[in-house]
Write a protein that binds this DNA or RNA. Structure first.
Length: 423
RNA sequence: GGAGAGGUGGCUGAGUGGUUUAAAGCGGCGGAUUGCUAAUCCGUUGUACGUCUUUUGGGCGUACCGGGGGUUCGAAUCCCCCCCUCUCCGCCA
């Protein structure tokens, strides 16, 4: 959420930001309501002041046994005016709040300007896509040959778009979770968190999933809870409506399943594990001092990259342009793994700096060195998403007979070197 | 799910309609005293919005005692709804 003062005082900057994002949001409505609100608030508060003074006077008169009927009648009239004005102010507040929650964040100055994906900036490419003496298979085919993926049975249980891993596939997924958690906790200084997988509407609003993305989430009506689309939601909201004690930065890593309805995605990448309604993810979340946030974003990106380097997987990093940036982000890097079976790059991480956008929505504050309570900056990024990581491992490490070599870094944890096709 | 007890500032904890502008204590910060520490004494203390003055900043006002409504000239206090915590019972991996 943007500060109403920012919108008021830097109107042109905000308008430009909305334009580069391709948003047609109408700021005029907000500005007009804000002006009406401030004038009403001033008027109502003057009346309240009068009422407070006279009420005290009434108390004094009654104590001295004098008559205060006249003052009381006057204040009754004043009270009626006040409650009418307060009702209008409440109405404006609620409309204004609703509108403010729909204004996207302002991209940072370095974010490349562009209307869509084609304007994203290639930051780096690491690792060599392997060359194959055979036509590389898709993970769907490999999964079947190895007996580790079973989409047919998953559909029987839950419908299309759900993963079912078996045997060495299930084991690989579990080992990867541990592998990544260990790197981030023991080498990168993150504290591990195991959060709830369901969140209330306030939490979803705090990080920016609500109100815009309601249709993308699973909602449990009987309990008014949402299944989390990412651990970002519960972990960031640990500090909602709180003035954080102790020093920043806070760094958390959390493994959770993620649930996404992927509404409107039917027909796209429906086969396999690339776009599913449920996937596992190891997520990194940081809460930092504002002047550190961009340095912390680079470190966050590096922390996620470490995982892919250890696994010796080819990847690239792209910086999203203004038009491709997610609602709450000011700057964002996507990490994409090469998947030879798809002949395409797969997004496995988005590392974003939200500046104070989420902190303001969620009411997360801290005391800076001069003792003032201010909004910290929040960041997060996957470190990394599992379903697609498994896809990339299977497809990059496959051999001609359909067997898959276990990446060196995982062999001791997996207690095997290679997954063999079922005979 | 049932019954009961609670929710007041950073913390403990008073306060059942107007001397409360939320007592007191602890903690924090600043100062005094002091070989050092401790103790003692004095001062100070939160958040948001509005407004004025804008030199850091400050002045004035309003609201905030779990959240939201209501009664009243006036609500931490009375009424209604909701949320959360604790204890006991039930159920349960």
């Amino acid at each position: 959420m943007l500060d109403i003062k920012t919108i008021r005082e830097r109107e042109m900057d905000v308008r430009t930001a909305l334009q580069t994002r391709g948003s047609d949001f109408d700021l005029d409505c907000i500005l007009e309501l804000d002006m009406e609100r401030r004038s009403l608030v001033g008027e109502a508060e003057a009346l309240k002041h009068e009422r407070n003074v006279v009420s005290k006077e009434i108390g004094r008169l009654k104590k001295e046994g004098e008559d205060a009927a006249e003052q009381r009648d006057q204040m009754r009239a004043v009270g009626e005016r006040i409650s009418k004005m307060d009702a209008r102010i409440r109405e404006i507040d609620s409309t204004l709040q609703g509108l403010l929650l729909e204004v996207p964040n302002i991209p940072c100055a370095e974010t490349p300007v562009g209307s869509d994906e084609s304007a994203n900036r290639l930051v780096k490419t690491r690792g060599e896509p392997g060359s194959f003496s055979f036509t590389p298979r898709s993970h769907v085919e490999l999964g079947e040959m190895l007996g580790i993926l079973d989409f047919e049975r998953a559909a029987r249980i839950s419908g299309s778009g759900f993963p079912l891993l078996k045997g060495h596939g299930a084991r690989l997924e579990r080992i990867l979770i541990q592998f990544m958690l260990d790197i981030h906790t023991m080498e990168h200084g993150y504290e591990e968190v195991a959060p709830p997988y369901m969140c209330n509407a306030d939490a979803m609003t705090g990080t920016g999933q609500l109100p815009k993305l309601a249709e993308d989430m699973y909602y449990i009506k009987s309990d008014d809870l949402y299944l989390i689309p990412t651990a970002e939601v519960p972990v960031t909201n640990m500090y909602r409506e709180e003035i954080i004690k102790g020093s920043l930065p806070i760094r958390h890593v959390a493994y959770t399943p993620c649930f996404r309805r992927e509404a409107g995605a039917a027909g796209r990448e429906t086969r396999g594990m690339i776009r599913v309604h449920q996937f596992d993810k190891v997520e990194l979340v940081k809460i930092v001092e504002p002047d550190q946030s961009y340095a912390e974003l680079e470190k966050l990106l590096g922390d996620a990259e470490t995982v892919l380097q250890r696994l010796e997987l080819p990847y690239r990093v792209r910086e999203l342009c203004t038009g491709d940036l997610s609602f709450a982000a000011a700057r964002c890097y996507d990490i994409e793994l090469w998947a030879p079976g798809q002949n395409d790059w797969l997004e496995v991480s988005s590392c974003s700096n939200f500046e104070d956008f989420q902190a303001r929505r969620a009411g997360i504050r801290y005391r800076n060195s001069s003792g003032k309570t201010v909004f910290p900056h929040t960041l997060n990024g996957s470190g990394v998403a599992l379903a697609r990581l498994v896809v990339a491992i299977l497809e990059n490490y496959q051999e001609a007979d359909g067997s898959v070599v276990i990446p060196e870094a995982l062999r001791s944890l997996m207690r095997m070197d290679k997954i063999q096709p079922r005979s």
